[in-house]
Nucleic acid binder design. Structure first.
Lengths: 148, 148
DNA sequence: GATGCATCCTGTAGCAACTACAGAAACAAG
DNA sequence: CTTGTTTCTGTAGTTGCTACAGGATGCATC
């Protein structure tokens, strides 16, 4: 029976925070260690107690990471979302950079996809002397010369 | 262009192999350690000596990794390309699996791209009280209630 | 034969971004 | 008081490499 000052999210133990956010306990402590999640107050016994803010920040971190933002990006976003919340253009820059990265990765993957698809399609699947997949991987094999 | 295939490549030192394939010396030794590249013979002084086969296998590994095959896939592909070269259908299976992975990743990234693009477009870039990017990251912010 | 420099050897440690454990302490319930 | 769960710190593991440290070897030159 504890004194509940505010909402039900105050004075939370790390395990509760973990269940609430779906972030592993160890990962929460890890985020604290790398200064991504602010250090929470402790009980007299030395245990971390989290509040609503921590829930929010942790959820933010999780979502940002899921969307592929780098840990450094996340730190910056958190800072920008902090005391001076108004630097929307900085936030947009980070998001734009990340968007460009994502687009570049998509382009690369689609090239790869076409190559793989074409190759697999060429593959008879039978016991043939030549294998289309191995051919694209093996430079020598791709040429018609015999080596060594 | 047949500079690589001949007997010149026999008795190569690890540094030459590295230059020839563009794989770092340390990485070559690493591949040997994890049994991806066969152990080469040594000189009396204990130095590794590589031949044409090693060049070919290493190039194969490099290309496979560049195309996103997992180290385990590469090992399997190498085995399938080895003594019994004829298991083309097995090779195709690996490539097909990988193709599916690639397609799934593309799908994920395109979803992410749409979300980011939409969000960035909504961002005014000015000093506004609300930031579209932060909104999609921060669940609380996305709702119209202000907490804590 | 001696010197000097490049290259090589082994072994270990570092990176990211977590995850997992060990052993101890704290807390809640009966 | 005992039991059981949770939490604490610290360290080590993961994957796929990369980067040393400290020593040995190879080869050219004097």
């Amino acid at each position: 029976m504890r004194m509940v000052t505010n909402a039900r999210t105050d004075g939370m133990a790390i395990g509760e925070l973990s269940k609430l956010t779906g972030v592993h306990v160890e990962t929460i402590r890890y985020f604290e260690r790398i200064k991504m999640l602010p250090k929470p107050p402790r009980t007299t016994g030395g245990r971390r107690t989290y509040g609503a803010t921590h829930v929010r920040v942790l959820a933010f971190i999780k979502r940002s990471r899921e969307l592929g933002f780098s840990p450094d990006d996340v730190r910056t976003l958190l800072r920008l979302g902090g005391p001076d919340k108004a630097r929307c253009c900085d936030v947009r820059d980070i998001a734009t950079d990340h968007l460009n990265d994502v687009r570049a990765r998509i382009t690369d993957l689609r090239k790869l996809e076409r190559l793989l698809a074409k190759t697999v399609a060429r593959c008879t699947g039978t016991t043939a002397p030549r294998c289309a997949v191995l051919d694209i991987l093996d430079v020598q094999r791709g040429k018609s010369s015999s080596t060594t």
